[in-house]
Computed example of a mutant assay.
Amino acid sequence: MDPKTKRAKRFLEKREPKLKENTKNAMLIKGGNANLTVTEVLKDICLSGPVLFFFLIFFFPPLRKNITRPFEDQTSLEFFSKKSDCSLFLFGSHNKKRPNNLIIGRMFDYHVLDMIELGIEKFVSLKDVKNSKCPEGTKPMLIFAGDMFDVNEEYRRLKSLLIDFFRGPSVPNIRLAGLEYVLHFTAVDGKIYMRSYKVLLKKSGCKIPRIELEEMGPSLDLVMRRTHLASDDLYKLSLKQPKALKPKKKKNISHDVFGTTYGRIHMQKQDLSKLQTRKMKGLKKRPAEKSTEDGGVSPKKSKSAS
Rank of each mutant, 00 (worst) to 15 (best):
T186L: 09
I67E: 15
S132A: 09
I143N: 13
N22Q: 08
I174C: 05
K246I: 15
D73E: 14
N25Q: 07
R278Y: 09
N33L: 12
H266S: 13
M216N: 10
S254I: 12
N100M: 03
K236L: 13
V112P: 00
V151F: 13
K159Y: 01
M1A: 15
P242K: 14
H255A: 11
M224N: 02
V51D: 07
R98V: 06
K130H: 13
I67Y: 15
H184C: 12
Y235D: 10
G263L: 11
H94G: 03
E214A: 09
K18Y: 01
I104H: 00
N101P: 00
T227L: 14
K96A: 10
S160D: 11
D85L: 05
R15W: 01
G259I: 06
P99A: 04
L245D: 05
F53S: 06
K251T: 12
A34S: 12
E40H: 07
M194A: 04
R156L: 12
P50C: 15
M194F: 15
S48W: 03
E153L: 13
K300S: 10
D271I: 02
P172T: 03
T39N: 09
K303T: 04
G282Q: 10
E293W: 05
Q270N: 11
G259S: 06
V223Y: 10
Y181E: 05
K6G: 09
E214F: 02
F185R: 01
L118A: 01
D294M: 13
Y155G: 00
T260P: 03
E16G: 07
S84V: 15
K65L: 14
P140Y: 03
N131P: 01
P209Y: 03
V38W: 01
K274D: 09
F144Q: 02
T227D: 12
V112L: 05
V129K: 03
K279L: 04
T138V: 04
K83T: 10
R15S: 10
I45Y: 01
I211E: 08
P3I: 08
D232N: 08
K9Y: 11
P242N: 15
I163A: 07
T37I: 12
F58H: 07
K83V: 10
M148D: 15
D109M: 13
T5L: 04
G205Q: 04
L126C: 05
M194D: 00
S231H: 10
E212M: 08
D294Q: 15
R225F: 13
K202N: 09
C46M: 07
S196G: 02
S291P: 00
S238N: 08
N33F: 03
F89Y: 05
